[in-house]
Design a protein around this nucleic acid. Structure first.
Lengths: 154, 154
DNA sequence: CTCGGTGCAAAGCTTTTGCATCCGC
DNA sequence: GCGGATGCAAAAGCTTTGCACCGAG
């Protein structure tokens, strides 16, 4: 999925509304980071996002990247993952259906999957423990059983 | 649940079998760390485990704690979590039933819960994607809805 | 006696923080 | 112009690594 101008405009409006609601400033750096994220596919970490932006019109600092990512996570335009490593991974989260992740224990490759039954679990736990579930993270650690699996350890 | 000598002996045998199968040495430090972990309740991080051991008969180094924890995770006697922070959390995992975690978005308090339906999801995904699921991590991020909730932000 | 394991400290990495400068409002 | 945001670099925090010494096999 390449950069989608329509989705970006929509997402930008959501971000603007969020900034206004929190009395935060609409800086060009924040828009530039949002745009860069929505032009990326799959997962990315802070360093790779920072590196990609370093070569473009906007040279933002790491501090600004961290700051803006926090804002985007807060307003649900970006989701943050910790796939067992000490490196936060991010991905855009607007306009794509809810999904979870399976990580190959052989090669660490990440595969996405959907299962609506997770919603049921959330509902049950919500009721039982008296909590309102905001979001969740389900990660399956698994090894490929295909004979021709290419995901072999390097 | 206080220290359970019977469980510790059982767990120690599993650890010994694992060490032998991998041709690793049976050092007193490794046993001491295992024993300390099985005398702890709930979650702990490396630093607190290291601190607790510093005052006892065995003064192990951080390097040994990290090394041994890796081994214990590999042989499934300890499980490792990344609750959204850059700090690995651990807990003993033998003799207790499978459970997942709900984290309060207000105070970060961790609550455990069980739901057998997660197993069904694992099975479906296994078949669909041709993976053998070894283990999983499900974390629900939620805020307490009790009026008298004590979990208020500090 | 050998070589894997330990202890200690230094190095590595990601993330946070402090501060001067900048610019949105 | 005020005060929040940025950029840079230093600092912090967790984890890994290097190396000399120790001790399990």
């Amino acid at each position: 999925m390449p950069f989608n101008q329509k989705i970006y405009e929509e997402v930008k409006q959501i971000f603007i509304a969020y900034l206004e609601s929190k009395d935060l400033r609409k800086t060009p750096e924040r828009y530039a980071i949002l745009e860069e994220i929505y032009s990326l596919d799959g997962h990315f970490d802070v360093e790779s996002l920072y590196a990609k932006m370093k070569d473009k019109e906007y040279r933002v600092s790491r501090a600004t990247v961290y700051n803006t990512l926090d804002l985007l996570v807060e307003c649900d335009l970006v989701s943050k993952h910790q796939f067992g490593k000490n490196l936060a991974q991010f991905e855009k989260s607007f306009g794509y259906k809810q999904h979870d992740h399976l990580i190959c224990t052989e090669c660490s490759k990440v595969t996405e999957f959907c299962d609506p039954r997770i919603q049921n679990i959330q509902n049950t736990v919500s009721e039982l423990l008296h909590f309102k579930v905001m979001h969740h993270s389900l990660i399956l650690y698994a090894s490929c059983t295909k004979v021709n699996c290419e995901n072999k350890k390097v």
